[in-house]
Deep mutational scan, measured.
Amino acid sequence: MATGGRRGAAAAPLLVAVAALLLGAAGHLYPGEVCPGMDIRNNLTRLHELENCSVIEGHLQILLMFKTRPEDFRDLSFPKLIMITDYLLLFRVYGLESLKDLFPNLTVIRGSRLFFNYALVIFEMVHLKELGLYNLMNITRGSVRIEKNNELCYLATIDWSRILDSVEDNYIVLNKDDNEECGDICPGTAKGKTNCPATVINGQFVERCWTHSHCQKVCPTICKSHGCTAEGLCCHSECLGNCSQPDDPTKCVACRNFYLDGRCVETCPPPYYHFQDWRCVNFSFCQDLHHKCKNSRRQGCHQYVIHNNKCIPECPSGYTMNSSNLLCTPCLGPCPKVCHLLEGEKTIDSVTSAQELRGCTVINGSLIINIRGGNNLAAELEANLGLIEEISGYLKIRRSYALVSLSFFRKLRLIRGETLEIGNYSFYALDNQNLRQLWDWSKHNLTITQGKLFFHYNPKLCLSEIHKMEEVSGTKGRQERNDIALKTNGDQASCENELLKFSYIRTSFDKI
């Protein structure tokens, strides 16, 4: 039985969820670079991206490699990797027998973001014989899940209580170790020597080791999670996991709180800001991140802002960003909400898709409305799209047979046209069989910064309504002859009103 693990408890099935942008060198404390989270699957090609990484700022997932063999891993080693800020997950990587050479110096898994409450997941690794993470000293947050690894031993010899604050939620089941077939031998045991430290858990006094050649490092209890030197002297209180010299914040392997210019500090002093819960960055760093993602459509890219001495992905609820200094300031009234469309555009074809934009005031991208039916549609669209004030790209209304009016965009005031449909149009209306009105132009103002209007096959939309939009939106004169079809717009509506004058002759039985 794995020490510190839980057996036999019912657990939810383990679901495996399925960018080499360097964020800056980590400095003297770390020998390499800070790398983003990685999802490495199918083959070993991307694994080489770990070569210079000291910190993975995010998670590391290595999974679904069915053609790899043990010899493929023999020359692979990433000794610079010290810390993973989120979680480490391995799933069905064939041929991998140990992690001792792959990650010989991995010391800390912070667990800032977890995989279903777990910071370390080893699942269905069919050839893994031992973990071998002999320098792993601290899992700051989260638990361990090690399950269905039929060859995995050296679990009962690990004292997880020396690595985690609590072992109650560890789930370590259905491994070879369960069948008591392992016969784990710690260093020196074969020669009758006791080389590794022994600890007591559940009444068992057991030597602690990761492999037959690597003991588990056990520091004096007084050192807590700070770690200790090879001689057993406690590291500085700002260290986490390990250090090369005692009581020196510049000799830590990793930091308990924050890293700044080669030393570990309790908090980031001005003019620095907390970033990702582990390091200090200056304003320029946060500003660069903001600008890199301002026009990016890459998933996970955030326009970072500053709030409460932190550089964070977005302002919290009730705050909006001051564009001059990136500071989050309290909103006066309802907060603006910028919604970034991942692929640059979004099609609204149902109430469900409209709900995804609920509360958005600025759309960074283009909207395509293609709704053919739905219950209580006008009210639903207004509830979900009615706060949109600005669209950076274009607005396209296409084959939306259920629409009679666009009044559900009740606050839309600006279409920038930074991206144009077919390279020309910022407003595009095609084949809307029941569209009769755009907006009530006596109450609604709309500016279209650039781009043209396109109207074709809107049989109940009168040309007068379209011409009014040209005047109000500032697009009059931009359109070419064929942009607004004269014969297919309003051709099934009563669009022309003329005053009919009647004269009559009164007659009676005795007068003409």
Rank of each mutant, 00 (worst) to 15 (best):
E168L: 08
G300I: 13
G227S: 13
P31M: 15
D75I: 11
T107D: 02
F103N: 00
R46C: 15
H290F: 14
C268Q: 00
N138L: 10
F258D: 02
P36S: 06
E57C: 03
P334N: 11
K129H: 12
G192H: 14
F205I: 05
C53V: 02
G300M: 09
G192R: 06
Y87D: 00
R92V: 02
L81H: 00
S317L: 10
E147F: 05
T85R: 12
L99E: 00
C311E: 03
A190Q: 15
A190W: 12
A198V: 07
M125K: 00
M137G: 11
P269M: 11
N257F: 04
Y304I: 03
L332A: 15
I82W: 15
Y273D: 00
F91R: 08
C328Y: 04
W210Q: 11
I139W: 00
I158C: 03
P246C: 10
D277I: 04
C243H: 00
T211S: 12
C215R: 15
N117W: 06
H226D: 09
E314H: 02
H302Q: 14
R256A: 10
D247P: 02
C186A: 12
G241F: 04
M125R: 00
A119S: 12
T107C: 10
P197S: 12
L136H: 01
K310D: 13
M38G: 05
L88G: 00
P187R: 03
G300H: 07
P36M: 12
V200G: 15
K129P: 01
I82M: 13
R263G: 12
L44T: 11
R41P: 13
L240K: 07
L327N: 11
V265F: 05
S98N: 08
G188C: 06
M321E: 01
P70N: 03
F73K: 04
E207Q: 13
L90P: 00
D277C: 02
P249R: 07
H226V: 14
C234Y: 14
P31S: 15
F91H: 05
L96W: 03
T45V: 12
T157Y: 07
R162I: 08
D101P: 12
F285T: 06
I163R: 03
K191Q: 05
L50Y: 05
N325V: 07
R298L: 09
F258K: 02
T140W: 03
A119N: 01
Y273S: 06
K310Y: 05
S284C: 02
L289A: 09
I82C: 06
R298Y: 14
T267A: 14
H214N: 14
E147L: 13
D288E: 09
R263L: 11
G192M: 13
L131G: 01
T250A: 10
E314N: 15
G58M: 00
N202E: 09
N195T: 11
F115N: 02
G241R: 10
Y171F: 10
Y259I: 15
Q245G: 15
S244T: 03
M38V: 08
S112L: 14
Q61A: 03
S324I: 01
L106N: 02
E124R: 06
K148T: 01
T229G: 03
W278K: 00
D178C: 11
R110W: 02
F275K: 02
N242L: 11
I139R: 01
N242M: 10
L50R: 02
T68I: 04
N309K: 09
F258H: 04
V108I: 13
N195S: 08
R141C: 02
G188I: 14
C255W: 01
I109F: 01
Q204F: 08
P249N: 13
L120Y: 01
L96I: 04
N295P: 04
D72K: 13
C35L: 01
S98M: 02
D159K: 07
C280Q: 01
F205H: 10
S244L: 04
Y87I: 00
G318P: 07
R263C: 05
L90H: 00
M125S: 06
I62R: 00
C264M: 00
E57R: 02
W278V: 05
K148V: 05
C311S: 03
Y134L: 09
Q276F: 12
C286W: 03
I122H: 01
P271Q: 09
G111N: 00
N138M: 13
G203R: 10
D247L: 07
L133E: 01
L64Y: 09
L332I: 08
I109N: 00
T140L: 05
H290Y: 13
Q299A: 10
L50V: 07
N308H: 07
E147M: 06
I163K: 02
K251W: 02
G203I: 04
D165N: 05
D159L: 14
K191H: 09
C331W: 15
D165E: 14
